[in-house]
Write a protein that binds this DNA or RNA. Structure first.
Length: 423
RNA sequence: GGAGACUUGUCCGAGUGGUUGAAGGAGCACGCCUGGAAAGUGUGUAUACCCGAAAGGGUAUCAAGGGUUCGAAUCCCUUAGUCUCCGCCA
């Protein structure tokens, strides 16, 4: 979340920036500032009273020690008088802090200066289009037909086992997933990312830490019995590894990668968007996360974008990079680059990666800090990106690489897949 | 899942109601010593919020939350976690 002191000191800037993100409830900003004023006033009064109680209590202790019972008893009645107002002030302070927090978590992150204005995906800025247009043969078909033809994924079986949107990968399909994950992880670890295999369910504090709560409450699967959320991305458990930690500056940047399934309810999706592997409730993804010095986060962002780009290029896919406009960005992000791969037979772009800088938005929630050279603790910047989401890469690969005699496996994946094609 | 023990600062560890944010040690930082290092030695070493230009001061925090009390790391309750034994089990 945004830092209170920053809001207090930059009220107009905050309102203006929220406008770029198309955030309507800018009145929240003034409510927060007013409430903060009250909070500080109440705390001052409360601290004052507490201080008196503490002093009096110490005196009682000393009097008791000296055996002056009567004087001690007199002090006690004095303290009792303070106690009532102390209790009231504490309650008031708690209420105010609760209200303040409730408002604060409803404010999204401020977009960085690079973020274009806009409301819808049409307003996103296309930074780059690259890669060769696949040349498909006359009878080329979308991936959902190829999947049937080569028996790679069984959606009906998933419906039987769980429900729609839970595909069952089979045979070469399962192996292709494994090959991709292995290859992506290999590239990430070679680039200095430490591999983690985190839990697939997280508690409320973790879901809150990365900003999924309260914003995306309805998008996550929830286990009420244990109060656990199924992770919508490994960003959640991986970034939360450092929740409530103070990192040594020398240990920055921290680079982590993880391969996990991701679970998303995707309520409200329908039609061609959810056909085949385009949008499912459970999918696998390899993620990269960085925790960096605040001065280095844009450098790190560029490096992550370049890294993901290299990955896609190595697969030989046609792709484009978008800088998302304010209205299309995520709640917690300051800037986001989306990667889309071209899906030759569907003739559409599929989002396969999203690389974001969260600046201090997540670290402020999670209290991830480092000690600077003056010994003062400062919030770090957090970033993450997909590298990559598997199903859409698979969809694109199948469609673009189909021939009349089978599907060609990209050269870099062949060692992991153990064959040059699917026939 | 049942029974018991436990949860203190970066770490180890003392502390069963009274100036305890917390002894002692280790680690770390800086200084002295040294040709350099080790050893030795001195000083410092939590976080957040509030007041203050600063120096400094106040408040809170000994797993988390609540309670008893003038006063709680210390007593009581709830929750979470760790360990041991039993049960179950990939």
């Amino acid at each position: 979340m945004l830092q209170l002191a920053f809001i207090r000191q930059n009220r107009d800037l905050v309102v203006e920036r929220l406008g770029v993100k198309n955030f309507k409830e800018t009145n929240l900003v003034d409510e927060i500032i007013a409430l903060d004023e009250q909070r500080r006033k109440t705390q001052q009064e409360n601290d004052e009273i507490s201080s008196r109680i503490n002093m009096a209590s110490k005196e009682i202790g000393m009097l008791m020690g000296k055996g002056e019972k009567d004087a001690a008893e007199q002090k006690k009645t004095e303290v009792t008088a303070y106690k009532e107002s102390s209790k009231q002030l504490t309650d008031k302070l708690n209420t105010i802090e609760q209200q303040l927090n409730d408002l604060l978590v409803r404010l999204p992150n401020l977009p960085s200066a690079l973020v274009p204005k806009g409301l819808t995906p049409e307003d996103n800025l296309i930074i780059k289009v690259s890669g060769d247009e696949p040349v498909l043969h006359a009878n080329a078909v979308p991936h959902w037909d190829l999947i049937k033809q080569y028996d790679l994924v069984n959606f009906e079986l998933g419906v039987k086992l769980t429900g729609s949107g839970f595909p069952v990968y089979k045979g070469k399909g399962a192996k292709l997933q494994r090959a991709m994950a292995q290859y992506f992880l290999e590239l990430n670890t070679n680039a200095g990312y430490t591999e983690y295999l985190p839990p697939y369910m997280v508690n409320e504090a973790s879901a809150f830490g990365t900003g999924q709560l309260p914003d995306k409450e309805g998008q996550m699967y929830y286990m009420p019995e244990d109060k656990f959320y199924m992770i919508p991305t490994s960003e959640v458990p991986v970034t939360n590894i450092y929740r409530d930690e103070i990192i040594k500056e020398i240990d920055l940047p921290i680079k982590m990668t993880a391969y996990t399934p991701c679970f998303r309810r995707e309520a409200g999706s329908f039609g061609a968007d959810v056909r085949g592997l385009n949008r499912v409730h459970q999918f696998d993804k390899v993620e990269i996360v960085q925790i960096v010095h605040p001065d280095k986060s844009y450098e790190a962002l560029d490096a992550m974008v370049a890294h993901v780009e290299k990955l896609i290029q190595s697969l030989g896919l046609k792709y484009r990079i978008l800088r998302l406009c304010g209205g299309d960005m995520g709640f917690a992000s300051a800037i986001t680059y989306d990667f889309e791969v071209w899906s030759g037979a569907q003739k559409k772009w599929l989002e396969c990666s999203s690389v974001s800088n969260f600046e201090t938005y997540q670290s402020n929630r999670m209290k991830i800090r480092f000690k600077d050279e003056k010994g003062k603790s400062q919030l770090v910047h957090t970033l993450n990106g997909s590298s990559l989401a598997l199903p859409r890469i698979m969809a694109s690969l199948l469609e673009n690489n189909q021939t009349e005699n089978g599907i060609i496996i990209p050269f870099v994946l062949q060692p992991y897949f153990g064959a040059v094609s699917i026939n």
